[in-house]
Amino acid sequence: MRDTAVQTHPSLALHRPRWSRARLRRHAVPWLFVLPILLINLLVVLGPAVAAVYYSMTDWSGIGAADFVGLANYQELFFEDPSFLSAFVHNVVWLAMFLTVPIAMGLIAASLLAPIRRGALFFRLALFIPYVLPSVVVAHLWSSLIHPDRGVVGWLNERGVPGTDIALLGRESTVLPTIAFIDNWRWWGFLMVLFLAGMQNIPPDLFEAARLDGANRWQEFRDVTLPGIRPVLVFMILMTSIWSFLTFDFIWIITQGGPAGASEVLSILVFKNAFQNFEAGYAAAIGITMSLFVGVVISIFVVLRRRGWEI
């Protein structure tokens, strides 16, 4: 086995005299531990992604040969395709909704739950359960529930409750917030559990000290709880920002981007162009652009970190 290893990877060349064992341990072994997953990621993600960079500069239909067209796809995307801008705006709206509502709900629920002894475990479990449901099930369930001719809303509508005679998923003004609501139903409990975990890691004496200073609930939350869970909060803000540019499942299952493109986000555009419009090259260009947005988000965090923010 050792021989195989030596032939497989030169950095394992134990017989080379200049590689002392100590040096091996210091430099090669750490990389050996990350190598398998690194190779898999190169194979699955990076290689195909690099291929996609090339395809984004072709007129590839998704089938057969691809002709190089330079930056024509990007030109069309940025200057000629109105659906791109509208999809981008929808992603930003989505980002705004997910940076506020679920995080606020998670924080509120976690801080309400933290001091509770009786039934704490039950609440924590119950509020978390939606997170384990598959998006397909949640999407079908809620689409039925809020349909004005079916489900809970239909039941209310039948009894003449005002405002329930609207198909929220069928109106341009309400469709995107409604899908976000459904997605958030599944998501916020997960945040709550993370925040709660963070809060329970805060040393109790900090709260004692705040109390001795006469802090009220809000001051305690602001001055002790929030700073205490800052790492997890910042991490989730980063992940939310990234995921908001990639969101796909719920929108695709529920509306496929409709009506009238009112719930179309970038990932939906990619899917439609790649699999419905025979524009795989153009789809790749949108995908690359999405990645750039994500890159900007990450860069902002990296820069903040360099500037000494404890992220």
Binding site: V45, G47, P48, A49, A51, A52, Y55, G62, I242, F245, L246, F248, L266, S267, V270, F271, A274, A280, A283, A284, G287, I288, M290, S291, V294, G295, I298
Partner: peptide
Amino acid sequence: SLPIHLFLVP
């Protein structure tokens, strides 16, 4: 953070 749709076909 790379979108799955970006590299799905390749």
